[in-house]
Design a protein around this nucleic acid. Sequence first.
DNA 1: TATACGTATGAACAATTATTCATATGAAAA
DNA 2: TTTTCATATGAATAATTGTTCATACGTATA
Lengths: 120, 120
Amino acid sequence: MSDKKHSPVCEDNIVHEDILQKVTSEMPEEEFLYELADFFKVFGDTTRIKILYVLFESEMCVCDIAKLLGMTQSAISHQLKILKQSKLIKYRREGKTVFYSLADDHVRTIINQGVSHLCE
Amino acid sequence: MSDKKHSPVCEDNIVHEDILQKVTSEMPEEEFLYELADFFKVFGDTTRIKILYVLFESEMCVCDIAKLLGMTQSAISHQLKILKQSKLIKYRREGKTVFYSLADDHVRTIINQGVSHLCE
DNA sequence: TATACGTATGAACAATTATTCATATGAAAA
DNA sequence: TTTTCATATGAATAATTGTTCATACGTATA
């Protein structure tokens, strides 16, 4: 918890030097911040969250996810691609069918973190 | 880790009953899923992430955040509103100045979760 | 090979969203 | 009260994004 204070410097045109140094040293690089935002963006869509919840229960093929969620195969496939790119899910092919499953338990942890924040 | 498997049922028009029941019983209500997605959406923007990183260091007034990030006061104020609505930050007024700070350490935990996922 | 089926994907459209601009609010000082 | 300064906010614009539609790809089977 940061209980430090600093007086506003809005009259000047420069922020206090010590704060400025601390902030700029702790702030990740621009590119990393974009990756970070993109990562969280993945969880910022109900369809993708629903897909993840479905995969909490069982590995599943695309058409079954689509049926369970009452959406088109195409829509699900597009979202699965995004989840795959973020390395939140993995897949294995079995003939014509592709089975998707959670990449690891990280996903559960992150979603639960969000859930517990909302339930406070 | 879910290591259960189920054969695809894409020929039929119905997903296996047991899976369907499990999924629908574990799936949160639609409204909650929207709140959850909206919550993660907040972290899905670099400006807001930057603001949170700045507040990791110190409580700060709007104009200083704007100066630190090289953005307009208006843009920052709009984003602070969103962060406030999500209860990620709090504020206190001191004369004309409004100081913003993190609501609790939850924010740090969530961001670090994202960071560690990216760094794997 | 030809057909069928499950999945992937590019383009287009509709909806959402971040920033800017102009202006309003709120508080202190003249 | 009037002015000044910090912050908030509504409307407009530009950019991003989710879904649909049409179609392509991959694999198995006839």
